[in-house]
Deep mutational scan, measured.
Amino acid sequence: LRQRHVACLARSERGLGFSIAGGKGSTPYRAGDAGIFVSRIAEGGAAHRAGTLQVGDRVLSINGVDVTEARHDHAVSLLTAASPTIALLLEREAGGP
């Protein structure tokens, strides 16, 4: 079961505080899956403080732009754009009992 949710992050002077992996033109985060995933969350960064991202979340869109088939460098450029806030649509595998 997959759950979707939106995370809104305000960029700090240190950026957004998370890294992505995967996407076309880069090493897959999961074998056989060209999706883009949250690969790291920086301690004390914007994403960590927001508490809405988890490592392993699939990134579906960035500020309304679909990145499900995107190249890695395109997703990075969307994240590093000048916008002071970033809205992410994420998909998470629902774990637990």
Rank of each mutant, 00 (worst) to 15 (best):
L1G: 08
L1C: 08
R2W: 07
R2V: 10
R2I: 10
R4N: 06
V6I: 12
V6G: 06
V6S: 08
V6Q: 10
L9W: 08
A10K: 14
S12H: 14
E13P: 12
R14V: 10
R14Q: 11
R14F: 08
R14H: 13
G17Q: 06
G17V: 01
G17D: 07
S19F: 07
S19P: 13
I20D: 01
I20K: 00
I20R: 01
I20A: 02
A21I: 12
G23L: 00
G23T: 00
G23P: 02
G23F: 00
G23A: 00
K24F: 05
G25P: 02
S26A: 12
S26I: 06
T27A: 08
P28V: 06
P28Q: 09
Y29K: 05
Y29R: 05
Y29S: 05
Y29L: 04
A31E: 15
D33Q: 13
D33F: 09
G35A: 06
G35H: 05
I36S: 00
I36G: 02
I36K: 01
F37H: 04
V38M: 00
V38F: 02
V38E: 00
S39W: 03
S39K: 08
R40S: 14
A42D: 15
A42K: 15
E43G: 06
E43H: 11
E43P: 12
G45Q: 08
A47T: 06
A50D: 15
A50L: 08
A50W: 05
G51S: 07
G51W: 03
T52R: 07
T52F: 07
L53P: 07
Q54L: 10
Q54S: 09
Q54H: 09
V55L: 07
V55G: 02
V55Y: 00
G56Y: 02
G56F: 00
D57N: 03
D57A: 01
R58T: 02
R58Q: 06
R58W: 00
R58Y: 00
R58L: 02
R58I: 00
L60H: 01
S61K: 15
I62K: 01
I62C: 03
N63W: 03
G64I: 01
G64T: 04
G64M: 05
G64P: 00
D66Y: 04
V67M: 07
V67S: 00
T68V: 06
T68Y: 04
E69P: 00
R71I: 06
H72T: 06
H72D: 03
H72E: 04
H72M: 09
H72F: 10
D73S: 10
H74Q: 14
H74T: 14
H74E: 14
A75Q: 00
A75G: 02
S77H: 15
L79R: 00
T80F: 09
T80W: 08
A81D: 14
A81S: 13
A82S: 13
S83H: 10
S83P: 09
S83C: 10
T85P: 08
T85F: 10
T85S: 12
I86N: 04
I86A: 08
I86Y: 15
L88W: 01
L88S: 00
L89K: 10
L89A: 09
E91Y: 03
E93V: 09
E93Y: 07
A94R: 14
G95E: 12
G96Y: 12
G96C: 12
P97W: 05
P97Y: 10
P97K: 12
P97F: 10
